[in-house]
Amino acid sequence: MIGAGGSPLRYLEFGDIVIYFSPYTLALFLLALVFTVLVIASKPERQLDIAFGADAFTTKDIGLSEMRFRRFMAIACGLASMGAMVTGDVFDFCLFTSLVGICNVGIVAAVKSRHVQGAAFQYGLVALAGTVPLFGGAAIVAATTGTLSLIELSSTLLPAVPLVVKGFLVLGVMGEGMAPFYAAKAEMFRAPGAPYVIMCSLSSLLIFLRVIEVVLQM
């Protein structure tokens, strides 16, 4: 098959779910991999509060357990986006995407700041509501074409997937974390701890790039 992202170089079979590496998905996969390694290796930044008018600053104190928890969430998020980049099954892609969503909520929810927690709650609500178009879209794909495999879906013999269902998938991915809902993340960025917060935005960027390929393939 020649999909939207070039013809696959390598397949990896897990029963009915076939993972494939095309030039496009491989590039995204490597990006996610590199960043996950960075998160594992790097030390978190410390946020500084500078006192105006005086030559002084204080370091915000962050507990060790909080840092460890957020690091764990960031690594899980990296692994989830790696999975979402290469999976060749629509429903599996949806599950990986919602895993990315819940990890993003976890990264910010651990922060002890009322404002950040409010943002995390709202974003969590959107992520939860986003599973509705996501899973619903995948289910309609299965019903109208009789298959969930992206490799099968790229062939022209099957009935066409209705356009609005593709819209469902894209909207669902947006709900799990992408612009214009991105604006809330600006609030989340007040949360200290650089590499972990960047993981949120990188993972949502990656899943958004991938869903474009998924939708074009159908």
Binding site: F121, T131, A139
Partner: peptide, 27 residues
């Protein structure tokens, strides 16, 4: 297949509701 897809869907829903309810209480 529908049944095999419902089970993950249910679990995802309840897991996220639990996490969110806890975040709500904290907030």
């Amino acid at each position: 297949l529908a049944e095999a897809l419902i089970l993950p869907g249910l679990v995802v829903g309840i897991a996220e509701i639990l996490a969110l309810s806890q975040i709500y209480l904290m907030k």
